[in-house]
């Protein structure tokens, strides 16, 4: 009996020490980690909008570019990030980014889509946070998958709001892209996410004034 109480006492003390160490390091690094995550998000927003993020050296410059060239606007339930590359000199934004989230197969997928000012034509898309299976669903983050979206419409041919991720190999229409072989679940969930997005954008489109 003495032996097991010693084990209990030892585990309890060790657990408390480890927990204190972990809590301390988490608290200490939290502001820096959050700043980095925020900068990462801004970098993705700027990248889909077509801003020259490759030339930036650090998160300070990133933030400067973002505050200078991007205007944040609320439209109903949507948050729009309008891109004015000439510091607001243009009447129309060059592109509008709309972030979206949804459940993937293993975890939350966060992405951002850049549209032309008509809020219909896709400029580019990025899935910047995802935990899909590497090599299968994880391919949503790869260039070949993302490039398919360029110049597609966020509405199907008959004007209905909607977007389809097809089985790979078919002929993809203007509101369709090829899905990923071996990642049907991820493809379906991405499709659902984009459909929800297309629907909320369609609801708000007529209220959109630049």
């Amino acid at each position: 009996m003495k032996d097991s109480s010693r084990i209990l006492l030892f585990s309890a003390v060790l657990a408390v020490i480890c927990a204190l160490l972990l809590a301390g390091s988490t608290l200490f690094t939290a502001p820096y980690r959050q700043a980095n995550e925020k900068a990462e998000e801004l970098r993705n927003f700027l990248a889909v909008l077509g801003a020259p993020v490759q030339e930036l050296r650090d998160s300070q410059e990133l933030l400067e570019l973002f505050t200078r060239d991007v205007r944040v606007k609320t439209l109903g339930r949507l948050t729009l990030y309008e891109y004015y590359p000439d510091s607001g000199g243009d009447a129309k934004p060059q592109a509008v980014a709309v972030p979206f989230t949804g459940m993937g197969l293993w975890g939350v997928i966060k992405g951002v889509i850049a549209l032309q000012p008509d809020l219909r034509t896709i400029k580019s898309i990025s899935f910047y946070q995802q935990e899909e299976t590497p090599g299968l669903g994880g391919e949503i983050a790869s260039d070949w998958f993302r490039r398919q979206f360029e110049n597609k419409q966020l509405a199907s041919a008959d004007g209905q709001a909607g977007f389809r991720v097809l089985k790979p190999g078919g002929q993809a229409g203007p509101a369709e892209v090829d899905g990923i072989s071996g990642a049907t679940m991820t493809s379906q969930r991405v499709e659902l996410m984009l459909n929800n997005l297309a629907r909320s954008i369609a609801e708000e489109r007529q209220h959109y004034v630049q």
Binding site: L21, L22, S25, T29, Y32
Partner: peptide, 14 residues
Amino acid sequence: STFVIVIDQFLRGF
């Protein structure tokens, strides 16, 4: 694992 998490957090921060 305590030390691994500490270094992981540190790298993510800095």
